[in-house]
Structure formats: C-alpha cells, structure tokens
C-alpha cells in the first residue's frame, strides 16, 4: 500500500474534493477560459490569473508574488500552452507552501513524543476551536491514546458544556472547573490531571478572542505560561484555528496570535463550504507556521491532516 493511499484514503480524498469543488471550478474553469486560444502568457492572462487568485482569498501580496514567479518561469522556460500554465501554477504554489512550511505531517501522530503532549488551542470567536478539539481528540483516541480535554474557555456561555459533550462523544477524559473560573488555573490543572492519570495528550480549549483585544491576548500568554509551569516544555503545540471563510484579516490574526503565544501550527476549518481556502497559501507565505489540519465537515471524523500536494492537486484536478 502506498504512502498516499494509507494516509489519504479514497474516502478522505472525496471529502476534500467535495469541499474544494467550488474552488476547483473557480480556479480551473476560469484559468482554462483565460488561456483558451492563447499562444503565450500575455498581460491579459496574467490579469485574469490575478483575478482568480484574489477571488480565492489568496490576497494581494501573495498573488503578486505568485504572478512574479510565473512571469520569471515563463521568461525562463518559454511556456506555451494551457496545460503547461496549469502545471507551472500548481508547481509554484506547492513550491511556495514548501518554502514557507516545514514538511507535511503524515498522520495524526501527536506533535511531540513527550508524555503527556500538551496542545493549546487558540483563535478568534467562532472559528471552530471546540469542534476542532473534538475531532482531533477523536483521532488520537482512535489510535488508542488516552486524551484529556481541558475546558479553559470559561467565558463564553455554555462553552464548558459544549466541550464536555464532545469529550463524551469521543469517550475521552475531561477536566473543568466550571464557568467563570480562572482559565490559567484550568490549564495548569488539566496538565496536572494528565500527569497524574497517565494521559498521552492534554488538549486545552481557550475562549475565542479578537486579536486586537490586548488584555485578552495577554491572558492567553498567561495561560500558556501556566501550562509551562505545570509541565516543563509544555505546551508542545499551540494550534491556531482559522476559519477558511475569513478574508485577509486571517493574516492579522495569524500575526497577533503568533506574537502572543508563538503559534506552532495552524488548523483551517470550514473548508467544506464555498470558501476557497486560498487564505492558507497567503498565511503559509507570510508565516513560517505549517498548516497541519483541515476541517471538512461537522461530523466527528471530518478532520484531515493537511497535505500541500494533495491540497494544491485538489485545486487543479
């Protein structure tokens, strides 16, 4: 069994394809139209390419970067037809992701071999942090690992209940001190719980916060420090959850959360909608943080590891 089949089974591929269908139609359809009947890449083709990339939320800076690279490539390789342009475009985007990202992860292995491995999950309001935690815990649980979820979103109404229901669905451990308690204390004690109960992983949920709220961002720093105090070297992963429907503001989110908590990985959610997911390319281009997971549906198993080749392939197939 090849590596690809093992980690990117047919079923999973279909989910991603379905999710990206819209993107595909946009990208591929428009691109084909743009270059149809043209013998070479001219200004018009590049303009159209710009339109395609931007309307997929790739963002201005990254789009310009991609176009410049294609121009350089074309000047060098003397490109001719549609299929070559497709290939070049695909290549360049994969390349861009490869340059800025570390290597793809291959499966849902814990981000660190340390036990317990502590993952802190952060993001703005409504991106799908809690859902992502549920799905992620499910994957770890499937591998026979013991997981505890820590309910450090003690602010939003019923957030603790929401996480608790997820822990029941997954069948994993759950640690909470209830609503309106100190999130840093919850985080600290969740890690202690993991240590005392021989958990392989502790995943800590935090309250959604806009990245412009300086005090809330500071609180996040405090939560992180309390995790480190609880266990040296923890958290082993700070996972920033981004909503694929978000536009250019996602870049500001990535910037501020990275500053506040040294984000080490990204999860991109809601890719099963009509959103293009192009934001992933933009963010990957500006930050050296890898995209690790993508959310492609509401069901518990609708989380996938991010594979840039498969991702870009899905855009152009």
């Amino acid at each position: 069994m090849s590596f690809f089949n093992k980690f990117f089974s047919k079923e999973k591929k279909e989910d991603l394809d379905k999710g990206l269908e819209k993107t595909k139609q946009n990208f591929f359809g428009k691109l084909a139209k743009a270059v149809a009947g043209k013998a070479s890449v001219d200004e018009e083709v590049l303009d159209e390419l710009e339109a395609i990339l931007i309307s997929s939320d790739v963002g201005l800076e990254t789009t310009i970067k991609i176009i410049e690279r294609i121009e350089a490539r074309v000047a060098r390789d003397k490109y001719l037809g549609t299929s070559e342009l497709n290939e070049i475009l695909r290549d360049e985007i994969v390349q861009l992701l490869a340059e800025n990202n570390t290597t793809d992860i291959e499966d849902f292995s814990p981000p660190s071999a340390r036990k317990p491995c502590v993952i802190m999950v952060v993001g703005v309001n409504g991106v799908g942090k809690t859902t992502t935690i549920g799905k992620l815990a499910y994957q770890f649980k499937q591998q026979g690992r013991r997981v505890v979820m820590g309910a450090a979103d003690t602010f939003r109404a019923a957030a603790v209940d929401q996480l608790k229901i997820w822990s029941e669905r997954v069948g994993c451990d759950f640690y909470s001190k209830g609503m309106n308690t100190d999130p840093a204390a919850v985080a600290y004690e969740t890690v202690q719980y993991a240590l005392n109960n021989n958990c392989d992983l502790a995943i800590i949920d935090t309250a959604g916060r806009l990245h412009t709220k300086i005090n809330l961002m500071k609180e996040l720093g405090k939560i992180k420090r309390s995790i480190s105090k609880s266990l040296d070297g923890a958290p082993h992963e700070v996972l920033l959850v981004l909503d694929a429907t978000t536009g250019q503001n996602a870049i500001e989110q990535a910037r501020h959360f990275t500053e506040a908590t040294e984000v080490s990985a990204l999860a991109l959610t809601k890719l099963d909608g009509t959103a293009k997911g192009g934001v992933a390319i933009g963010i990957s281009d500006q930050f050296k943080v890898p995209i690790k997971y993508i959310g492609v549906g509401e069901a518990i198993d609708k989380l996938q590891v991010f594979n840039k080749r498969a991702f870009v392939d899905s855009l152009f197939e």
Partner: peptide, 8 residues
C-alpha cells in the same frame, strides 16, 4: 462575520 473574505 465582518471578517468574511471573497466568499461573502
């Protein structure tokens, strides 16, 4: 969501 991108 006011942060929505092109998909709005």
């Amino acid at each position: 969501d006011s942060m929505t991108g092109q998909d709005a």
